[in-house]
Write a protein that binds this DNA or RNA. Structure first.
Lengths: 267, 267
DNA sequence: CGCGCCATTGAGCGGGTTCAACGTAAGTGG
DNA sequence: CCACTTACGTTGAACCCGCTCAATGGCGCG
């Protein structure tokens, strides 16, 4: 088992202000403990790791590849909750069952743990549990941002947010050429954004017309104006919300906002 | 300090299949430990516990009342993420700062903890940390359901989901009379559902016309057909999603579905 | 090189937003 | 206790974004 690569958790700068170091938050000892109970899996694209409602025994840690985690409504409609990348966990049980589906989008290399065994390790290694707590808190924040996004932003803005999220991951963004390689097709993207694939295409067309991106192919996109993408989200979707007397979030307007008037107008 | 009432955490049946007992998941010893570092607060309606972006030092546990947790976009638009009820935590920091606003909706009684002190307790009481982990996991699942709801359901369906959520909390639902007392006004509800207040009113009118509820006042609502409310969510909002070859969620149709044809048609 | 699937665009429709007006409930002070 | 006041809630009408169905275009794979 010692021939395995390092067990890496994607670092999260969380847990009450003590920013984690940029490297692997797992100590050598914790890695050993995990390695002892880990099974390594190599999966082809389209493999289902687990299904919604199933009895949950295993937790997964992604070493390579990308996983799509989605939840299905009773109607059969699919909402992609999150795309998982290396260093992320998935499959933590909810009342003993899986709460959603997890499927590989690309080839993937995974560590699989028995959840009960992992909980045993937690009791002797409280710090490891803190690391997991930090990861879950991070995911929770991310989920909250998506709630906000789905509730308050229109399709273009949600697409812009999505692009910005993936620009932040070096694996998908070549900063040199400013070229983004999307790991998913339009169907998956639409289900992630909560729209139809056609609407996604139209949103791409719109922000391309604004000069913010250029589509090379469907999956390869040059980012022409990252700031412009951020500015898109400055435009409200709806008139107003909340009472006037509610504590609201007065934002300091940056001075160079005029440059992005056309973006903010957003036709 | 020992004159304080029991420190109660709303139980969550989670943590890998071992359903928690229905009572308070905190042991007597854990309660003592928490009580030692707790400060009790009594708040009027409309009090801001903390603000988005602020330095985060405290975590709150609700003893009585209801708290609204909302996130504000750069546009100033407000999305209510969750309503917090007794036994829930809020204010867990994100990178040393609060990630959203928390405001009392009604009178509220709160325990306030220093987050760093609480983390100290975690290291000596791993089980307490497991309890918190369970709470956060629960919140995370709830957030995922809202993502799904906002992405896949229309306004009526989201309203129905909201009503069903609050029917499940005895504090707000008088099962005897089948009467629900909403703890929030239409503005808050609209920002929770991600719509305009007018759309919320129209959604109420629609499901009243379907015979599922009756509005006594804006805040008092008789639930006439709980099953019908659940059936509403069976109607897809959009044509289709996902590839045909994706593992999809084939649901067994209950036999008495015909009774709710009018609801499922949903005009 | 050709087939098939994915992506894009067009046209029409429906749900939701917006602005405006009206109805209603609760709270206040005379 | 009632009239006043104000804020909240509801309804109407017009507009617009996004959904749907359909057809065409283009990339990738065998």
């Amino acid at each position: 088992m010692s021939a395995l690569p390092e067990i890496r958790v994607r670092p999260v700068t969380d847990i009450g202000g003590q920013s984690a170091p940029a490297g692997n938050p797992l100590s050598r000892k914790e890695q050993e403990q995990l390695r002892d109970i880990a099974k390594v899996l190599d999966c082809k694209p389209g493999t289902t790791l687990y299904s919604q409602g199933e009895q949950a025994r295993h937790v997964y840690l992604i070493a390579e590849g990308i996983i799509r985690v989605n939840h299905c409504e009773e109607t059969g409609h699919r909402q992609i909750l999150v795309f998982r990348v290396p260093g992320d966990f998935c499959g933590i049980p909810h009342e003993g069952h899986y709460f959603n589906f997890a499927e590989t989008v690309s080839n993937a290399l995974l560590y699989r743990f028995e959840w009960v065994q992992m909980q045993q390790v937690f009791l002797t290694e409280p710090h490891l549990q803190l690391v997991l707590l930090g990861k879950i808190l991070h995911d929770y924040r991310q989920a909250q941002m998506r709630i906000s996004s789905l509730g308050q932003q229109n399709t273009c803005q949600r697409l812009a947010s999505f692009l910005l999220d993936f620009i932040a991951i070096p694996e998908f963004f070549d900063a040199e050429r400013s070229r983004l390689t999307l790991p998913v097709n339009r169907f998956d993207l639409a289900d992630y954004l909560g729209t139809a694939p056609e609407s996604t295409a139209r949103a791409f067309a719109k922000i391309e017309n604004l000069g913010l991106i250029r589509r090379i192919t469907a999956r390869r996109i040059d980012i022409l104006d990252k700031t412009g993408l951020r500015m898109l989200n400055r435009t409200p979707r709806r008139r107003n919300s909340g009472h006037p007397d509610t504590a609201s979030f007065k934002k300091h307007e940056p001075a160079d906002l005029k440059r992005y008037e056309s973006v903010l107008a957003c036709k």
